[in-house]
Each structure stands twice: as structure tokens, then as C-alpha cells.
Amino acid sequence: MPQPSDANLHGDVFGGWIMSQVDIAGSIPATRRAGGRVATIAVNSFTFKQPVFVGDLLSFYADIIKVGTTSITISVEVYAERQRMEAEVVKVTEAILTYVATDDQRKRRAIPPV
């Protein structure tokens, strides 16, 4: 849930705050599939569909859409539950990010087979 410090004086949440949360959400399935450390190497697409407001309850859904030799592409969708008398849920953001698996020296490494 975004806080007042995450928004401008009108209560609109900064896009950069949402982007950082999307990156965290996307890194979870990427890390699990890679079996270890990953780094974000590309934001392939990022679309803000609706504004996000202070007090919205956000849910992030991340799915693997492609696995390469060293990289994993993740789709992330963000939904906001508006905090009103009757909850309204709207899709506010969708993004596709690519992560690369890295070793302890932060060099690319192969993703293990399933």
C-alpha cells in the first residue's frame, strides 16, 4: 500500500515507486527459476493504465513467459483495490522485464534445467 511519501501533493503515486515494486515482484519468480541471484537487464515494456493513489491496496502478479540460456522474461500485472465503501479493483499497470542469472562474481551464468 503506497504511503503519502510515495506520492505527489495531489496523492498520485510516483511512477518510479510503482516501477520499483514491479521489479521486486518480477525478481521473485526469476530468482526461483534461476536457482539464485538475478539482475534486471531490461524493461521491455511498461504501461501505466490507471493512476494509483495513496491508500490503494496493490496486488502484483508475476509469471514467467520465456526462459533462455541465461535470461528469464517475466510478465507483471498490477491491480489496485480502491479503498472506498465498496471495493473497486482495477488493473493499473502491466510490464515485461528481463532478468539475467548471475554467479557470485555477478557474471552471467546458465540457468539450470527444470
Rank of each mutant, 00 (worst) to 15 (best):
I65V: 15
A39D: 03
A34M: 14
G68T: 13
T70S: 14
F60C: 05
G11R: 08
G55T: 09
V38C: 02
Q50R: 09
A39N: 15
T70F: 05
A62L: 12
F53I: 08
F60N: 08
A34I: 12
A42Q: 07
S20Y: 01
I41T: 15
A34P: 00
P29R: 07
W17R: 06
D56F: 01
G35Y: 09
L57G: 07
V43A: 14
I64G: 05
T31L: 11
W17D: 11
I28Q: 10
G16F: 05
S5T: 12
I18Y: 03
D63Y: 04
N44V: 10
S59R: 04
G35S: 08
G55D: 01
D56A: 06
G15W: 10
S45P: 04
D56T: 12
P51W: 14
N44Y: 07
A30I: 14
I41R: 05
V52L: 05
H10V: 14
A39M: 15
V38G: 00
M19Y: 10
W17F: 15
D63Q: 12
T40A: 08
A62V: 10
D12Y: 03
G16M: 09
V22N: 04
T70Q: 15
Y61Q: 13
I28C: 03
G35Q: 10
Q50G: 03
A7L: 05
A62T: 07
G15K: 04
T47V: 14
N44T: 08
V43H: 08
V13C: 04
P29N: 10
F48E: 02
T70M: 10
I28G: 08
S59K: 07
P2G: 07
N44W: 00
F46M: 08
V22L: 09
F14K: 12
T31K: 09
P2L: 14
N8V: 07
D6E: 14
A39I: 15
H10I: 12
Q21P: 02
G68S: 13
H10L: 14
A34F: 02
Q50D: 06
G26N: 04
T31W: 01
F48G: 03
G68R: 04
S27N: 10
R33F: 11
A25L: 11
T31S: 13
T70D: 02
A39L: 15
L58M: 01
G36Q: 13
A39R: 09
T40H: 00
G55E: 09
N8G: 08
V22M: 05
P4H: 01
K66G: 11
D12T: 04
T69C: 05
L58A: 04
I64M: 00
F48T: 11
V43N: 08
P4T: 11
S5P: 01
S45Y: 05
L57S: 13
V38N: 03
S71W: 07
L58R: 04
P51R: 06
V22D: 01
K49D: 08
